[in-house]
Amino acid sequence: MDKVIKAVPDADGPLNPLREFTAARIGIGRPGISIPTKQSLAFKLAHAHARDAVYSRLDIDALSNDMMQFNLPVIVLHSKAGNRAEYLQRPDLGRKLKKSSANQLKEYAGDYDVSIIIADGLSASAINENVIGLLHALIPLFMAARLKLAPICFVEQGRVAVSDKVAHLLNAKLSIILIGERPGLSSADSIGAYLTYDPKPGLTDESRNCISNIRPQGLPFKPAAEKIFYLVQEAFRMKLSGVGLKDNQGLISH
């Protein structure tokens, strides 16, 4: 062998210019047809971050403190899943409200338009980092529309459907749950928003509308809040949510 050929393409590989358009792992090159060493290890590191996010916890103290700016009561609730291991294997428990939490809510029952519920889901880090920014964009829209907001509820070890029970006990016409999404490699900090009109226990996914990937590098707070607000208005107008409620926002601009 006369000389060793450098197997890994340099950083200015021909496909690199495409990278400005997406965070997807394109233009990474190939020794043979395989993933280069540097990229392979970067991937492993990202996976490690995502695994850590799954096991993160809501920082209730800091979040409650930040919530004071909204002048809404804050309630901290727990699902029936006792810990993360149980949460991961028993989603049914994450959808149910612990009895003491349900009792706690009864004191707050009222006649509300919208109940906002915040749950750790699969990434408490996402909520810790991004939920205040999202609420900062969202709550003024509701206020301007004179919608009556229920107290804001945190649910630890919560899944999407726990919002049905919470909003039902509060007697709210519509629920929005902001929940930490399953972490991706490039995004361990995404919030998903699920909206349900006439929430009550026993509903399934076809009754909800979802807006996902809410985070600064994904769907930023302002457009996310506008989209949620648009769907809320449409849900109230059509008196439904889910597959019957299409997101036609923006259709006229095409």
């Binding site: 991937f43 399953r182 995404s190």
Partner: peptide
């Protein structure tokens, strides 16, 4: 791209 779906997060 690179096994990482940046929208569906898997």
């Amino acid at each position: 791209p690179g096994s990482d779906d940046i929208m569906l997060n898997y």
